[in-house]
């Protein structure tokens, strides 16, 4: 534990950061010509926080929450997704994804949990984009900085969205912000889980707590400390190495597909324009 790294994670003025995120959502959607947003509600803290921020940014009438449980999803996830929608008074849909997932895996009855989990994440993405087109909305992302950095997400699944207000907040900061904006305590306090199979927890799968993970990440990423410098602050070198290796191995997940350069100018390399070009 290091004071330096714990301090680096502290948000001094949560009201200000909330205002930044709210304005970010409003302005990035507005500039692109959208008033509405679609949010996939899992019943977890990330998507709940995004829904709260979206309602502040766009108004309750302009936010559509969609819960997409599979038959093994825990009843409390379903309930909490519905609870958030009810609290915020937003349009809400619960769409069971069991039929299409099971129909597909009837072809591959031996498929493992990761394969099935990835398929579910991509099915949910596909539903969110279907709704986005139907409702004239953009899809808000719910990936936080911790999961982006270690690659704890499904490529083109939960990692696919249009605008992400949480991507520069570590998970422990998401908890703080969620509590601050009024996400119900039982959602903030429950163990984070992708809920892909019964009893699954993020921290169990990642192999360390978000509390510890975030300290190592903020040291390496934000403060640009080197491996040995982090270890010397009092962190187990095996844990530090594991985290750094997760970052390195998941770099591909943070990038768009790579293109082979042939011509003078190549779309992903030296054709450089912001997305907000002309907006």
């Amino acid at each position: 534990m290091s004071e330096l790294l714990l301090k680096a994670l502290e948000i001094e003025d949560k009201a200000f950061i909330e205002e930044v995120l709210v304005r970010f959502i409003r302005e990035e959607l507005g500039k692109a010509g959208f008033e509405k947003a679609v949010v996939g509600l899992s019943g977890g803290v990330d998507s709940s926080l995004v829904a709260f921020l979206a309602v502040k940014a766009l108004g309750a009438d302009n936010v559509i929450g969609i819960s997409m449980p599979y038959k093994t999803s825990s009843p409390s996830s379903r309930e909490d997704a519905r609870l958030v929608a009810e609290l915020l008074n937003i349009e809400f849909h619960e769409i069971e994804i069991t039929p299409q997932i099971d129909a597909y895996y009837s072809l591959f009855p031996d498929a493992d949990g990761v394969r099935r989990g990835n398929k579910m994440a991509r099915e949910r993405m596909s539903i969110l984009y279907d709704f986005a087109h139907w409702k004239g909305a953009l899809v808000l992302g719910t990936s936080n900085k911790s999961e982006l950095l270690i690659g704890y997400s499904t490529r083109w699944g939960d990692a696919a969205h249009d605008v992400n207000p949480l991507g520069d907040l570590y998970k422990t900061q998401v908890w703080e912000m969620a509590s601050f904006v009024g996400v119900p305590e039982r959602i903030v306090e429950k163990k984070p889980s992708a809920d892909l199979w019964p009893g699954q927890t993020d921290e169990g799968e990642i192999g360390l707590s978000y509390y510890l993970l975030d300290q190592i990440l903020v040291g390496y990423v934000d403060l640009r400390l080197r491996r040995d410098e982090i270890v010397s602050l009092g962190y187990d070198e095996k844990v530090v190495d594991r985290v750094l290796s997760m970052i390195r191995r998941s770099q591909y997940k943070r990038k768009l597909p790579i293109i082979c350069k042939i011509a003078r100018r190549t779309v992903d390399k030296d054709f450089l324009y912001f997305r907000d070009w002309g907006l």
């Binding site: 502290e10 948000i11 001094e12 003025d13 200000f16 950061i17 930044v20």
Partner: peptide, 11 residues
Amino acid sequence: SGWGYREKEMF
């Protein structure tokens, strides 16, 4: 461009 969350009421 704004960065940093260690101040009050501003970046």
